[in-house]
Amino acid sequence: MSRLPRLAGVTAAALALGLLTTATAAAGEPTVSDPRVIAHFDFAQGQTPENIALEPDGSADLTFSFARKVANVTRKGTTRIIATLPAVANPDTPNIGAAVVTGIARAHDGTLYVNYSTGTSRTGIWRISRDGGAPRQIAKLPPDGFLNGLALDERRGVLYTADSVRGTVWRVPSRGGRPKAWATGPELEPGTGPDASGFGVNGLRLHHNAVWVSNSDAGTLLRIPVRENGSAGPIRTRATGLPGIDDFGFVERHRDTVLAALITADEVVRVRPNGTHTVVLTGEDGLSNPTSVAVRGRTAYVPSAAYFTQEDPNLLLARVHQRARR
């Protein structure tokens, strides 16, 4: 999520928040084709899909940020609401003012975890049980922060979440408990110039024993190793020149190759392990301020929140050609 005007209520929040671009892929690189929008959502109702987790059947769980809801969308586009986060009186979330649901992660047993930012004591990580019970807060995080990307490490029993305003990656026990500031540094902080959005570290994925994050203001993709004792290793920049980068996903069978959403450019780019990147999807394919990417097998899922276009929040699927290098 990138900067939005301060909002009052869902209606005000809604007002704020070509064809496939063909690029020749080098030998062994994955290519993306056949983009199609499978579900359209209601912008006026705050159905702005911010983040995504995939179910075993190929359906997608999406956070509708300003509606404070979590929805499941089948590959045929059928949408149902599976949870609603509680309303907050007088929310005061940094940068936007409204209460928003952002990052989402799924455990193997079907439990869902979501980030909820409110500017109040309800800011934190919430758990949604697989039986559909009411969401329950399992960790409180600073109300003056803005929680964004979220990932679950079931082996270690911890969650990692990106705080875009405080420039921090938090680590929280998945059973619930006290958060720990796991990684900090200037690489994670929001910009300070006149064009800065106020959003630093944003997207977050766990990949090959490291936490990978994006920094929206800096336009960077970063890797933070997880040491044997669980502490954070040194922050390394893996790609630059990605203005407005939001969340991202890794392409299976292609080590460290990323498909990343550039929210302000209406683009998805393929980022190679050497940091170079190529546009693979654009607004002409149906993107409308894309916020995240998930990849499974030969399918890429791209939610668009339409925060700035204010037109056609949706879920797009595209085919990923898995041509791994031999």
Rank of each mutant, 00 (worst) to 15 (best):
T220I: 07
G191K: 06
N148D: 15
S216H: 04
S216Q: 10
P143H: 13
R155Q: 15
V169T: 08
P194F: 07
G219L: 09
G145L: 11
D195I: 13
L188N: 12
R155K: 13
L150S: 04
L150A: 07
N209A: 15
A181V: 12
F199P: 07
R205V: 14
P194S: 14
P179N: 00
G157D: 02
F146P: 08
A151R: 01
D144C: 02
P194W: 09
L152K: 11
W170V: 12
D217F: 11
R166P: 04
G167P: 03
G167C: 13
L159E: 07
E187K: 11
P143E: 14
G149K: 03
K140N: 09
L147A: 01
S214N: 05
L204H: 03
P186C: 09
P186I: 02
V169Q: 10
V172N: 00
D144A: 11
A139G: 00
A162S: 10
V158H: 09
D195H: 15
S164D: 14
T168S: 09
R155P: 06
G198H: 05
T220P: 10
W170S: 12
L159T: 06
R175I: 11
E187M: 09
D163F: 01
P142M: 04
R205D: 11
T161M: 13
V169L: 15
S216Y: 02
G200P: 00
A183S: 15
A210R: 06
A139P: 00
A181Y: 11
D163L: 03
A183P: 04
F199Y: 13
P190G: 00
R171N: 04
V165Y: 12
K180G: 04
P190T: 03
E154F: 07
A196N: 08
G185Y: 03
N148T: 10
E189K: 14
D195S: 14
R205C: 06
S197I: 05
A181S: 13
H208T: 14
A196K: 07
L159P: 07
T168Q: 10
S164Q: 08
L204V: 05
P186G: 05
G145T: 13
H208Q: 15
G200H: 01
G219D: 07
P173F: 01
S214I: 03
S174Q: 14
G145E: 07
H207N: 15
D163C: 03
V201S: 10
G176A: 02
H208G: 12
P143L: 02
E187C: 00
E187N: 15
G193M: 02
A210W: 00
A196S: 06
L221A: 02
W170F: 15
G200C: 02
P143T: 05
A139F: 04
G185M: 03
